[in-house]
Design a protein around this nucleic acid. Sequence first.
DNA 1: GCCAACGTTGGC
DNA 2: GCCAACGTTGGC
Length: 139
Amino acid sequence: MAYWLFKSEPSTWSWDDQVAKGDLGEEWDGVRNYQARNFMREMAAGDLGFFYHSQKQKAVVGIVEVLHEAHPDSTTDDPRWECVDIKAVRGMTRPVTLEQIKAEERLGDMILVRNSRLSVQPVTEAEWRVICALGDTAP
DNA sequence: GCCAACGTTGGC
DNA sequence: GCCAACGTTGGC
């Protein structure tokens, strides 16, 4: 099983919006970046991911599960773009802020720190555990 | 609101 | 195929 991070502006799609979708989940659509798309193509059902709020909050706020492997993005007719479906699993007991992540030596190589613009990115198992610990949440 | 980083586009 | 111009993202 692999770990990922999904980034969203809460004004566009927030953790609360994701939670409201329940176990049905929702398409992670609208991604128009090849790197991000390629990562989604690598995902499998059952993979876990962090849900990150960009812009104002800048924090990992929850954990999501990949429900279905990549399929065509329903928001476009352009066949290049695909997306996965994800559902909310649980919120972090405490959101883990970007500030905390940057301050943690073991997270210094995270893509979130190195390339803040990539909206879908892989997370290593070690990084996953550190952030879950910071968020007071079971991995 | 600004700006740096990055990705994409299009002219040559 | 290169590179300048442009648009977007996201942290500050």
